[in-house]
């Protein structure tokens, strides 16, 4: 009989040990993690706008609060009730915020005009050469229409047309 109890206890212990193998937060998010790459970049993944530092992955509540009222905003839920994406539009940039549970993070920043520069002093309207000069050769991808710098799941993408920057986006890819 003792052996049976011991066997039962063993199973319960296995169950208990296995139940500690992942943290609670990971459970709630289904273990979804960003893609990691070995590529390192020297560029920064933030911009300063209206004296507010807006960084990819940062707590969005603090950023949105510091920026004041947006010109407009639009929220859309994900299928299956898995989070919400909200776009906040300001004069010179858009911020996309991903909400999951009680967490809200800056997921994407799009610069709309030359009133905002990257920390490397590149803005919409800069030349392709100016991008490479300012950000270096450590890009993860370069085509005729874009240059992308990557660090882990964070990306800085310069969209080009005829050798000129027409769009700047900070993107999280998970």
């Amino acid at each position: 009989m003792k052996r049976i109890f011991a066997l039962l206890l063993c199973f319960l212990m296995i169950f208990a040990v296995v139940s500690c193998s992942k943290d609670e937060n990971e459970e709630e998010n289904g273990g979804d993690k960003g893609i990691t790459t070995s590529q390192k970049s020297s560029v920064s993944f933030y911009v300063n706008y209206k004296s507010v530092k807006i960084e990819l992955g940062a707590d969005a509540k603090a950023v949105i609060s510091a920026l004041g009222t947006a010109k407009s905003s639009l929220s859309m839920g994900n299928c299956g009730g898995l989070g919400t994406l909200t776009k906040y539009v300001y004069d010179s940039l858009e911020i996309y915020v991903l909400a999951s549970g009680s967490t809200e993070t800056v997921d994407q920043i799009t610069l709309l005009d030359d009133a905002v520069q990257t920390p490397e002093k590149v803005s919409v309207g800069s030349a392709k050469d100016a991008v490479i000069s300012a950000c270096g050769n450590g890009y993860s991808k370069m085509t005729d229409t874009s240059i992308t710098y990557t660090s882990g799941s964070k990306n800085l993408k310069f969209t080009l047309r005829d050798g000129t920057v027409t769009g700047i986006d900070y993107l999280t890819v998970s």
């Binding site: 296995v18 139940s19 459970e27 273990g31």
Partner: peptide, 20 residues
């Protein structure tokens, strides 16, 4: 995904046990 394992699909209890 990289964080998932096949055995957790066979025995979902291994994945969802913390919901207990």
């Amino acid at each position: 995904t990289d964080e998932e394992s096949f055995i957790e699909y066979v025995f979902p209890i291994l994945r969802f046990h913390s919901r207990i």
